[in-house]
Design a protein around this nucleic acid. Structure first.
Length: 886
RNA sequence: AGGCACGUAGCUCAGUGGGAGAGCACCACCUUGACACGGUGGGGGUCGGCGGUUCAAUCCCGCCCGUGCCUACCA
């Protein structure tokens, strides 16, 4: 008799629901944004994952949160664009493809640049969409028709345009600078790409003899081989021990080079001997010291990490071999004072883990301070807000101490730098279009720079390059600035700050209005997850095991602001239980809706019906306020409490009377409330757990072929009057109190009980007799104002007492203990209230409302105490002083 | 070393200037016609420590201890 698609099976099976609904949503174009739309726009760009990447927990979390926002805003009726894509990940991708080539016994040099690039594109076409498919499995509602890749023609054009403009503004320049060099990748790395790792090394103390005289000076170093590039020895200007030596000359051992002793405040007199060898070619501090004092720079390394001709007899050796030889030779000449164990930090290549060598090289740099100033202002004046706000400190600190950015990379995979050098006059021609002739001398003998730009350079343009910049496109006009950027805290420098700088500089506006920094997921022991710790969790495995909705719900429900969280199986199992609860509530609804006619006129609902609708409205309002503030956990909590604690625990139980009763009108009204409230709850949950909510929604009667997302959120219902609110509160309290007596006295669940109410409660009890009987297990409710029967447990409910008759006289002993406990608790409460009210300063200085509340509280507690005490006396008289039981 | 968080029930975590909550775990009873991934009831916490501000502090301030993350780096 029903035209519904299916009956809900006993258990929810996530897999088929996930693939079915995701496919239908895509077909229906639900995720498409439109530029020709009068609705308010809401937009986000996805932090583009690395094209070589696989979905890890960080992606899963961030994407779940963004999807929650995107779906929520769509359901609010906005024109939502969530723009997806990937970045080309210069080094990572090149390393992957080179590894594949190596298996075929080839290097990229065997292929040549063009063939190698083709090889990478080929690789991308086969493997580059893996992470996109994984995001889809997670349910992400991105507008896939607008998927972008940082190497797309449009985005590449944006990169060139930006490079050329910055060059013309003298913000991009070439310079010789000490850079981080990866000898394996043979490319420069940014500081951020060369993280430090702790190693157990040695600290060598070496003696440098003075040129004129028998004295010598001792220096300490962890990298003795770099002495081959020393051009000075430095001491602190205020260090009296060495004051006489400053300006004299030492003879550098092994190479016999004469180098000066200089004074520079960067030297820490407390460390080691207080004198330091200065190697401007291979140490950041020394490089800066060298610039200050105009010391010569000697580079002793070849690009592959071997020593070059400047190392004299050590040329051709690896750094490691050279270190051993240098130490041995120094020792032989009695110049090695000592070596001791020393833990220190060395930089390694983020991508291949090779030791990074600082070395001087000519690179393209970008001046950052002029762009940093407006970027700082945009956050200071609130045009961009960080959530949680404390991350602003991180942002400010980095931008206030910003240094030039080395943007060139000696790779073959990436955006090739649009700069050509003239063979004849050596001048650079920088141009968005490939030039025919040198700008300086007109020569046609031009060579394009072989380097490419760092990947982050193109990522920094992502919020506007993906929307068509530099053209003035409808997409840009509609969706820029974007609404929210959601990402991880450790990426603020790499990406967020650079997007803000580039966005302001090139579009004149901020790239996004809100930056949400999501929590970090820790393992069950509270440690950061990492491959090296092998404590990672594979999101796809979890999704397969527990279902994607359970996984998403867990991540969202744990995302409290400003706090990381631990993830383990327990958390996810809890989410699955919640989904099962929802599922079973839906099955209950379905069973009771078999004859439901959505179009039939229904009379106004019962108090229960009107109450649960109001509770739904309040839960949705709380959830939506929470989402507005990025308090994802609070949103989840509001919905959870409603579904489980109110809809399932109370409404369904209360509605059973009408649903299963004889009054057809009452039944129809409750059916309507049941289905509409459930649908409203599903709508509220849908942004967080899209699949199961759609699955249930589509199985409910009265569907019109549209999807849950298209229905949006339910309209508000009229509020309850104060009287109605009091009535439902009192009913719930009565039921709770009686259940409490049953539980505390250990009455068997089957045991029927008789309850005596005062006549004043008659109206309440009679209006809700069905609920009271079924939910308390009462067989009879009586009304009497005289003293309650002796054989009874008495409890107090908002202003009146109710008595539960006890069949078994021995239970009075338990009742005695129950009352004694209640009395103890009341006395405790009373003494705390008294402590306040007896303090004259409290009455004098506390807010009058607070004082009044305490007075009220005291009055209520005293009343209650008197009533409990009276009853206690009576029970004591019956049972005797020892109580009913031993 | 500096910065930023965090420390609340056995565990994972919410929360608030007026005597603290949830989920899981635990105890008791219950295979009741949605649901044992369940129901009803219950026990359990000097809210990290020490000071300060306040009539009142778990909450605000300072110091200390512990944990985590980030940044920088001593040759």
């Amino acid at each position: 008799m029903s035209d519904r698609r299916t009956d809900l099976p006993k258990r929810f099976d996530p897999r088929p629901a996930e693939s079915r609904w995701y496919g239908e949503w895509l077909t229906a174009g639900l995720f498409r944004a439109s530029v020709d739309d009068s609705r308010e726009a809401y937009s986000m760009v996805i932090p583009p994952p690395n094209v070589t990447g696989v979905l890890h927990l960080g992606h899963a979390l961030n994407s779940s949160l963004q999807d929650t926002l995107a779906r929520h805003e769509r359901m609010l009726g906005k024109n939502v664009l969530w723009l997806p894509g990937t970045d080309h990940a210069g080094i990572a991708t090149q390393v992957v493809v080179e590894r594949e080539l190596a298996q075929r016994g080839k290097t990229r040099h065997d292929l040549g640049r063009e063939a190698f690039e083709a090889e990478v594109w080929e690789w991308k076409s086969h493997h580059g969409s893996r992470i996109i498919e994984q995001l889809q499995a997670l349910g992400c509602s991105c507008d896939w028709s607008r998927e972008r890749f940082t190497m797309d023609p449009g985005l590449s054009r944006a990169v060139r345009e930006v490079f050329v403009r910055l060059y013309e503004q003298s913000l991009i320049y070439r310079d010789e600078f000490l850079v981080n060099w990866c000898p394996r990748c043979t490319t420069v790395l940014s500081d951020l790409e060369s993280p430090y790792h702790t190693v157990e090394g040695q600290l060598f103390t070496i003696r440098y003899p003075l040129l004129d005289g028998p004295e010598s000076i001792q220096v300490a170093t962890t990298r003795p081989e770099t002495m081959l590039g020393d051009t000075a020895v430095a001491v602190h200007p205020d260090d009296e021990r060495y004051a006489a030596l400053v300006g004299r000359t030492v003879r550098l051992p092994l190479l016999d080079r004469e180098i000066p002793i200089v004074a520079d405040p960067f030297v820490d007199p407390e460390f080691g001997s207080g004198a330091v060898k200065v190697t401007p070619g291979h140490d950041p501090n020394d490089f800066e010291c060298g610039r200050r004092l105009q010391l010569p720079v000697i580079n002793i390394l070849n690009p592959d990490g071997t020593l070059n001709e400047n190392a004299g007899p050590y040329a051709g050796l690896s750094v490691r071999a050279a270190r051993e030889r240098v130490v041995a030779d120094l020792d032989a000449q009695n110049l090695l004072i000592r070596s001791e164990r020393h833990t220190h930090e060395v930089p390694r290549c983020d991508r291949c883990d090779t030791l990074v060598e600082p070395l001087v090289s000519e690179q393209w740099f970008m001046r950052m301070e002029p762009l940093a100033r407006p970027a700082l202002a945009a956050v200071r004046d609130g045009r961009i807000a960080f959530h949680p706000r404390s991350w602003e400190n991180t942002y400010f600190h980095w931008l206030e101490n910003i240094r030039p950015w080395a943007i060139s990379r000696q790779l073959w995979w990436g955006h090739r730098i649009p700069a050509w050098r003239c063979d004849d006059c050596r001048e650079w021609t920088v141009s968005a279009e490939d030039p025919d002739a040198c700008r300086a001398c007109g020569s046609a003998a031009l060579q394009q720079d072989g380097d490419v730009l760092e990947t982050w350079f193109s990522s920094a343009l992502w919020p506007f390059s993906t929307l068509g910049w530099p053209d003035d496109t409808p997409e840009l006009r509609t969706f820029y600035p974007t609404s929210v950027l959601s990402t991880a805290g450790d990426i603020i420098f790499f990406w967020v700050a650079r997007m803000i700088m580039m966005g302001l500089h090139f579009t004149g506006d901020v790239p996004f209005r809100h930056v949400y920094i999501h929590p970090l997921i820790l393992d069950p022991e509270g440690k950061k997850m990492s491959k090296s710790r092998s404590n990672t969790i594979d999101p796809l495995e979890v999704m397969g095991e527990h279902g994607t909705d359970a996984f998403r719900w867990t991540l969202v429900a744990l995302s409290a602001q400003g706090r990381n969280f631990r993830l383990g199986d327990d958390q996810i199992a809890g989410s699955r239980a919640f989904i099962t609860k929802l599922w079973n509530a839906a099955r209950f609804a379905q069973m009771n809706l078999a004859d439901f006619d959505a179009d039939a006129p229904a009379r106004a609902g019962s108090l229960y019906d009107r109450w649960i609708r109001v509770r739904l409205d309040e839960a949705l309002a709380r959830a939506h306020r929470a989402l507005d503030d990025f308090r994802f956990n609070d949103a989840a909590d509001a919905l959870y409490q409603f579904v489980w604690g109110e809809f399932c625990d109370w409404y369904i139980e209360l509605a059973k009377q009408a649903l299963q009763g004889d009054d057809a009108d009452a039944r129809r009204a409750s059916q309507r409330t049941l289905v509409e409230t459930l649908a409203g709850a599903l709508a509220g949950l849908h942004p967080i757990m899209p699949f199961v909510t759609e699955e249930i929604f589509q199985a409910l009667p009265g569907r019109d072929g549209r999807f849950l997302m298209q229905h949006g959120y339910p309209k508000q219902s009229p509020p309850l009057s104060n009287e109605e609110q009091r009535e439902i509160d009192a009913l719930i309290e009565v039921i709770r109190r009686v259940r409490q007596i049953r539980g505390e006295l250990g009455l068997a669940p089957q045991a029927r009980i008789r309850i005596t109410f005062p006549t004043a409660a008659a109206q309440l009890v009679e209006s809700h007799a069905g609920a009271i009987h079924s939910l308390t297990g009462a067989s009879e409710c009586r009304f009497a104002d005289e003293e309650p029967p002796e054989q009874a447990a008495v409890t107090r409910v908002s202003g009146f007492s109710i008595a539960v008759e006890l069949e078994d006289p021995s239970l009075l002993g338990d009742e005695l203990r129950r009352l004694e406990k209640a009395l103890r608790n009341l006395d405790k409460d009373l003494s705390f209230v008294a402590k306040k009210l007896d303090n004259p300063k409290f009455r004098e200085r506390a807010k009058p409302a607070v004082v009044e509340a305490e007075v009220e509280k005291q009055k209520r507690l005293r009343d209650e105490r008197a009533s409990v005490e009276e009853r206690l006396d009576r029970v004591r008289r019956i049972v005797g002083p020892g109580g009913g039981r031993p």
